[in-house]
Every structure is written in structure tokens, then in C-alpha cells.
């Protein structure tokens, strides 16, 4: 009897909340709602554009999945995935051993080197010696945060930001001496008026495959092998049928898939 009552209550709750839920079962692709050009940028009409948005659409179209972009802050993406708030993360998230402890990844869909930029009026390079005594900013829980902690922690002071955009902002404001991030994302910043005025490229950091990982993939739940298979097949297909190249050409003059 009691059990029935609870079931009835749950059913009522389901009916109430269910009214708000979408009827279909789309794949919810989580991304952090922050400007991260040229991969993700908001536009003035409230939509998201960029290379990665187009790649997500291409992959979903290829795999015949109905995808829905779901904004979740960067540091909440993995918890949101494991608690089933979203079904996949496609947000320039690098495939790393550390993350693989909690989630699974598809094959990579791009891979680019990691760069350090800094103010124009300072000269240094992206080595522990060069960064001695500097303040370096990184986005929280990224491969770059892990990298600077391992390689530069003894030499430089590390500051962590919620978004890479805020780290760039503080670099332009002069509160940081350097920031480390994906070379393409930083290049996009250096091409803005603000970036041109303040900063330039200091160099690429030394490779560390264990931390930086083999590239960017879609983050998936470990048990979702079916979705993983579909996405892997779709990545392979768009690489082969030219869709990937066509999208890439719109944004870059080289292939960012990497070797």
C-alpha cells in the first residue's frame, strides 16, 4: 500500500516535471557557454557559431542523431555527464588519462599544439627558465592547468580562471604576465584589436603527451558504448567524405586534425 502511494506520488511528480521536458530523446551535447573563438563564439542574436559547433552538427547529421547543445559551465561538464544531465561533451576537451578515470572519450577530432602568450613589452619563452617570477594564468581543470602545475609551478605563480576569455582579459589588463592555452584559441585572441594591442606569441610549450593528451575528443559516459561507436564512425566518415575539410577551410588555412 505504502509502496503504491510512493509510486503514485512519483507518477504525479513525473507528470508535473514531465510537462516541462522535451518529448523526444535528443542527445544532449554539453558545452561551456563562454566565448572560445574560433571554436565556440556567441553571436548577438543568442546563437553559438564556430568551427566546433559546425563539426558537432556534421557529426550528429552523419550519425543521424538529434543533438541539442546544452550550456554547462566548464568545471561542471564532467559531473554533468556522469550524473546524466548531458550525454556527451564536445567542447575542445582533450583526451587525457586523468579524465579517462571518470569518463570515456571518442576518437580525437582535432589536435593542435599548446602555446604561451604574453605582453609585447616583455621577452621570454615558454620554458620554466623563461617564466621565472612571472604570473601565468590558465583556465581551471584544463590540460593547461595540469601542465603549468607540473612544469612551471616552481618558477611561476599560477592563477586559475573560470574561462580562458577571462584569463585573456586579465592579460590585456596587465594583471597576468602570460597565459597558456591552445595555440589556435590564443591565435584568435591575438588577432582581435585588444590582443594586437597588448600581446604576442612567446612560443610553444614542450610536448608532454601524458598531460596534454593525443588530441580533442567527445567526452562520453563509460557505459555508453553505443553512442561512442556512432560518434567514432561519424568522425571517420566526415574525415573521408570531405565535410571536415570543407568546414576547416572556412576557419583555418591548414588542417587542424594533426598527425
Amino acid at each position: 500500500m505504502r509502496n503504491m502511494l510512493i509510486k503514485a506520488a512519483a507518477a504525479a511528480a513525473f507528470a508535473v516535471v514531465g510537462a516541462f521536458a522535451a518529448s523526444a530523446e535528443p542527445v544532449k551535447v554539453g558545452f561551456s557557454p563562454e566565448p572560445y573563438p574560433p571554436f565556440f563564439s556567441p553571436d548577438a542574436s543568442g546563437n553559438w557559431t564556430g568551427w566546433e559547433v559546425e563539426i558537432i552538427n556534421a557529426i550528429c547529421a552523419e550519425a543521424k542523431l538529434e543533438c541539442e547543445l546544452t550550456p554547462i559551465p566548464w568545471d561542471g561538464l564532467i559531473p554533468a555527464l556522469t550524473s546524466k544531465k548531458i550525454d556527451a561533451i564536445m567542447n575542445s576537451m582533450s583526451i587525457t588519462e586523468e579524465r579517462k578515470k571518470s569518463i570515456d572519450f571518442s576518437d580525437k577530432y582535432y589536435n593542435t599544439p599548446t602555446a604561451v602568450i604574453g605582453p609585447k613589452d616583455q621577452t621570454f619563452d615558454a620554458t620554466p627558465e623563461g617564466l621565472k617570477g612571472k604570473i601565468i594564468g590558465v583556465q581551471v581543470s584544463t590540460t593547461h592547468a595540469a601542465y603549468v602545475k607540473k612544469h612551471f609551478a616552481d618558477a611561476a605563480e599560477i592563477k586559475e580562471y573560470q574561462t580562458q576569455d577571462e584569463a585573456n582579459q586579465d592579460l590585456a589588463a596587465g594583471r597576468l604576465d602570460a597565459t597558456q592555452a591552445d595555440s589556435i584559441a590564443l591565435d584568435a585572441f591575438l588577432k582581435t584589436d585588444q590582443g594586437k594591442a597588448c600581446c604576442d606569441l612567446k612560443g610553444m610549450v614542450a610536448e608532454d603527451l601524458e598531460i596534454l593528451g593525443p588530441g580533442v575528443g567527445a567526452g562520453l559516459r563509460k557505459e555508453d558504448t553505443e553512442l561512442k561507436g556512432k560518434i567514432n564512425a561519424a568522425i571517420k566518415a566526415i574525415r573521408e567524405n570531405g565535410t571536415y575539410e570543407a568546414i576547416t577551410k572556412k576557419y583555418f588555412d591548414f588542417d587542424i586534425y594533426g598527425g
Partner: peptide, 19 residues
């Protein structure tokens, strides 16, 4: 903070995109 598109979040995005 949880990424919901209310006024402060929209402001943050607009500010970040336009500087």
C-alpha cells in the same frame, strides 16, 4: 555560475565577445 542564460550570464558573454 551554473551557466543559465539569465541577465548576468548574457552580460558576461556579450562583454567577453566584444571586450
Amino acid at each position: 555560475i551554473v551557466g543559465f542564460n539569465e541577465l548576468t550570464q548574457e552580460t558576461r558573454q556579450a562583454a567577453g565577445a566584444t571586450k
